[in-house]
C-alpha cells in the first residue's frame, strides 16, 4: 500500500493508504483525528473544513495522493497552536458568544471563519456581512446569527 507523508497539526505523519482515499478518512479512520466531521463527503456541508497551508479546504474531497510532504494540514485540534495559546481567538469568541448547539458543525465553522478573516485581511480589509454571506457551512441547528457575531468579535483579536 502506498505511503503518504504530510505535516499534521505541526507534526510530520506518515500513513499507509490507497492513493484515492479522501483525506477526511485518512484523518478520521486511520489517524483517529475526529475534530473534522463527516456531514456529506460531497464538498457541500463543510463540516469537515480544515486548513491546508493556512487556507480552508474540505478533506472529504481531496485524495491523499494530492497532498504533498511539505503541505501543512491543520484540523480544529491544531488550530490553537497556530497562535501559540490554549484557544485560538476565534474559539474564544465562540465560547464568549455561546455559539454551539449540537456542536457538530462548529469545528468546520471555526476553521472556515478563521480562513475567511485571513482572506479579507490579505485583501487589506476587515470582514463584512457580504463575506459572511459567502460561508457555505451548514448549521442545521441554525446558529448562524451567533456565528456572525462571533466571527466579527474573533477577528478583532486575530
Amino acid at each position: 500500500m502506498p505511503t503518504h507523508t504530510f505535516i499534521l497539526n505541526g507534526r510530520r505523519v506518515t500513513v499507509d493508504a490507497d492513493d484515492d482515499l479522501r483525506l477526511l478518512w485518512v484523518l478520521r479512520d486511520i489517524l483517529g483525528v475526529t475534530g473534522p466531521k463527516y456531514g456529506c463527503a460531497l464538498d457541500v456541508c463543510k463540516a469537515c473544513t480544515c486548513h491546508i497551508n493556512g487556507k480552508a479546504f474540505n478533506p472529504c474531497s481531496v485524495r491523499v495522493k494530492d497532498i504533498s510532504p511539505s503541505d501543512e494540514i491543520t484540523t480544529i485540534e491544531g488550530l490553537p497552536a497556530t497562535v501559540g495559546a490554549d484557544l485560538h481567538p476565534m474559539q474564544q469568541a465562540w465560547l464568549d458568544y455561546d455559539v454551539a448547539q449540537c456542536g457538530y458543525c462548529q469545528p468546520g465553522q471555526i476553521m472556515a471563519a478563521v480562513a475567511k478573516v485571513r482572506q479579507a485581511r490579505a485583501d487589506g480589509r476587515e470582514i463584512t456581512d457580504a463575506d459572511l454571506d459567502e460561508l457555505r457551512n451548514i448549521c442545521r441547528c441554525g446558529t448562524y446569527a451567533r456565528i456572525r457575531e462571533a466571527v466579527k468579535a474573533g477577528a478583532q483579536d486575530m
Binding site: 475526529t34 475534530g35 473534522p36 480544529i76 485540534e77 490553537p80 465562540w94 454551539a100
Partner: peptide, 27 residues
C-alpha cells in the same frame, strides 16, 4: 449561562457516535 459542553464542542473534543473508539468497530 454558557453551555457546559461548549469547550469540548469548539475544540473538536466533543465525542459523537462516529468519534467513539469501540474496539474493532469498523466503518
Amino acid at each position: 449561562q454558557g453551555r457546559i459542553d461548549a469547550y469540548d464542542a469548539i475544540t473538536g473534543r466533543k465525542q459523537y457516535t462516529m468519534d467513539l473508539k469501540v474496539p474493532d468497530a469498523k466503518p
